[in-house]
Each structure stands twice: as C-alpha cells, then as structure tokens.
Amino acid sequence: MPRTVRVVWTTREHADRRAEAARLVRAATGCTLRHGPCSRCGGDHGRPRLEEGGSVSLAYAGDLVVAALADDGDIGVDVEEGSASASARIERLAPGSTLRDWTRFEAATKAVGADLRDGAHLPAVVEGEDWQTDVAGRLVHGWDVDAPTGYVISVARAAAAAPDRSTS
C-alpha cells in the first residue's frame, strides 16, 4: 500500500467551506473536487473524490479546511479545534477519551466510509504516533499530523480490502 499522502489546509474567510475545499484541492493537485451521492439520502454531499482520479478526504473545524490527498487507496482525515488532551465527545464510548482519540476515530471511520453504527473501535497506538484499528472488518493505519496552533489533525489509510473469493 503506497504511503504517499499529502495533507493541506487553509483558513476560510467568509467563503462557503465546500467552495473553499474545492479551491484548496484544485490548488494542491490541479484536480476537480466532486462529491458522490450521500449513502443515506442520495444528496450531493457524499464522500468526496477527485474527478481525475486519486483519493481525497475533507475535514472542517472552526475556520480551518483540511484535505488529505493520496494517489490511490482509501484515506480519511479529521480535524478538531482544541487541545489534543481535552476531553472528547466519545466519553460515552470510552471513558477518558481525548480530542486526539476522537480525530483518530473519525479519520479511521472516514477511511473506510463507515460510522459509529459500523462497530468501529477506538484506535490503538502501536508505535510512537502511529496507530491502527479495525473498522468494519478492514485494517486501518493512521498517524497524527502537525496542525496549526489550536487544532488537532489525524489521518488514516485503509488497507486494501480482501478480494471477494465467493463463487456463484
């Protein structure tokens, strides 16, 4: 699995966050950002993609717009405003959870297109700042990114899904 991932961000100044994300991605890659259909309602606010190919994940917090970009594979990113050690909103799932735990969780679930209902677990730190977890039956590898002051950013890449070997 290639590990070539770029994380870029910008602050939005009175612009719509989706418009700012499109400008950010275009400036970083030269590619057009598109949104797939929402898996729940069919609206045009589903998983983002690059029209010219490649993988992209977007996250927003306050005035910060973040994009994680990869040539291939499934990627996820999350950003939250605050201190990495601050108490997180997943306290109900895992007592003592921090904002860093939350960004890791969100990045991992985005990497596989999952959410809380898919039985995701908090990532386990395995070496330094690297971590891994299993989400919806897929192994996800992640790491933390140096973020602007007052923000926490985590990125995740999903391991390739095992091929379907069933026969009909």
Results as ranks from 00 to 15, higher is better:
G73N: 08
A21D: 07
R17D: 03
G82A: 07
R92C: 05
E91M: 07
L33I: 11
A70G: 13
R40K: 13
A28K: 01
P48Y: 12
E13H: 14
L69C: 06
P37V: 04
A27D: 15
L93K: 12
L93A: 14
S57E: 01
L69V: 04
S97A: 15
P48I: 11
A21V: 05
S85N: 04
R47D: 00
G62T: 03
R17E: 05
A67V: 09
P48M: 13
T29D: 13
L58T: 00
V79C: 08
D71C: 13
G46F: 02
E13D: 15
V77S: 09
G76F: 04
G42A: 03
V79W: 02
A15F: 10
G53H: 07
C38W: 11
A21M: 13
V25W: 01
L64T: 04
I75D: 01
C31Q: 14
L24R: 00
T29F: 13
V25D: 03
A15W: 04
E51T: 00
L33M: 14
V65R: 00
H35Y: 12
G30R: 13
L50H: 02
D71Y: 15
A86W: 08
A19V: 13
D16C: 08
E52Q: 15
A19I: 10
A94L: 14
I90A: 11
A21W: 08
R47E: 09
A15S: 09
A15R: 15
G62M: 05
A22N: 02
L33F: 10
E51K: 01
A68N: 09
S87C: 04
A59C: 01
A88R: 01
S83L: 06
A61W: 08
D72T: 14
R47M: 06
G30I: 12
G96S: 12
G42Q: 08
G73E: 01
R17P: 13
V25S: 01
P95N: 07
V77Y: 07
S55V: 09
S97Y: 09
A27L: 14
A68T: 05
G43L: 03
A94G: 07
A70Y: 01
E91L: 00
G96D: 08
V56L: 13
A28R: 11
C38I: 10
R17A: 10
G82K: 12
P95I: 10
P37S: 06
T32A: 13
A27P: 14
G53K: 12
R23C: 10
L24T: 07
E20C: 14
G46Y: 08
D71T: 15
P95G: 12
R49K: 11
L24S: 01
L64V: 11
G46K: 06
R47F: 04
R40F: 04
S39I: 05
G96N: 13
G76N: 08
D78N: 07
A67L: 11
S87D: 06
V77Q: 10
G42F: 10
